[in-house]
Amino acid sequence: MDRNQIGKWLRSPQKMSNKYSLHAVYFCTGCGIIEIPPSITTRWDAERFGIIPAPNPRQANLFLITGYVSLKTLKAIIRTYEQMLEPKYTVGFGSCPINGGMYWDSYNTIKKLDKYIPIDGWIAGCMPRPEAIFVAVTHLWTLIEKDMATGYIKYRKNYKQYRANQEKIYGSLDWPPLYK
């Protein structure tokens, strides 16, 4: 352990352990998922940063959305996000979740993902290199340390708005609201 960080560990052990054990949901959407296998295996080894893919959303707290989000995928993303345990962090990966990217005039692709679920950070680019994931992760550490990665609190607080937006797309959702 880094001796300089002992003070931080003693002051807020929970925050520090959240920071260094990010379990990413292995959720594949779009083309960006092709960057994930090299970054979690030996070439770039995400475990140096404490990231490890989790087999299911209930054991994970980092959600990488790795590409364009079609209407069908959005449904799965919302369900996955709602199943994850708090604290949970989301990172939009690539330019498609930000504003549609090259699918800006597509009839079936979501343009701005943060209208439907909260996003803590974005990685711009098409495609971002695996190094960009680690830059994003180190930024996320800073955000967690400063209590700024509060997407899940925002989701709880503004759930009515999020739910209304989700229902605007599909008409009605076939699962009950997560919060009252």
């Binding site: 009839y107 343009k111 943060d114 209208k115 925002k154 607080k157 503004n158 708005q161 605007k168 797309i169």
Partner: peptide, 15 residues
């Protein structure tokens, strides 16, 4: 269609 459908969905305003 994009202008009518996706652009009409409001951005989340924080309470």
């Amino acid at each position: 269609f994009v202008d009518d459908f996706f652009a009409n969905i409001p951005i989340i305003e924080e309470i």
